[in-house]
Amino acid sequence: MFWDFEGREIWVVTDLMQVTAEQIAQMCKAWWQMEVFFRWIKQHLNIPTLFGATPNAVYGQLFCAFIVYVLLK
């Protein structure tokens, strides 16, 4: 259990017994920031599918999409 920035109580269920509530809260916040980032990518870069499965292919496609986005803006 932890509290958000507005003082609301949040309960998280996990099987990680060696991790404190504060660490779990930080993990959830980091996870949410990744979700927001990927949502932005899907909305603004118009990448419906990735062409490759290797890290280099994914990075290449994302970097090309970022470059095109910046040039168009």
Rank of each mutant, 00 (worst) to 15 (best):
Y69Q: 10
L50D: 03
T49F: 02
F51S: 12
P55Q: 07
K73D: 12
T54R: 11
E22C: 01
V58C: 00
L62A: 01
F5C: 06
M34H: 08
V58H: 00
D15W: 02
W11P: 02
L72W: 06
K42A: 14
Y69S: 09
A25T: 00
G60C: 03
D4V: 09
A65D: 06
V68L: 14
P48L: 03
I10K: 15
W11V: 13
R39F: 10
P48M: 04
K29W: 10
V19T: 08
R39W: 08
Y69D: 13
R8S: 06
Q18V: 01
A57P: 00
W40Y: 06
Q26H: 11
A53R: 11
L45N: 02
V12D: 02
F37A: 15
F5M: 09
W32M: 11
D15M: 02
I67W: 04
M34S: 10
I24D: 00
I47W: 01
E35Q: 14
Q23Y: 05
G7E: 05
Q43L: 09
V12W: 07
K42T: 07
M1K: 13
V68E: 13
Y69H: 14
Q33L: 14
G7Y: 09
Q33V: 08
L45A: 08
E6T: 06
K29N: 09
N56D: 13
Q61G: 02
Q43W: 02
V12Y: 10
C64K: 07
L50W: 15
Y69W: 13
G52R: 11
P48G: 00
A65N: 01
E6Y: 13
A21L: 07
V13W: 09
E22V: 05
W31K: 06
F5D: 09
I67T: 07
A21H: 05
F66Q: 08
W32C: 06
E6P: 01
L50Y: 15
Q26E: 15
A53F: 05
L71M: 10
K29G: 12
P55G: 05
P55M: 05
N46F: 08
A65L: 06
I67P: 01
N56A: 13
A53D: 15
W3N: 02
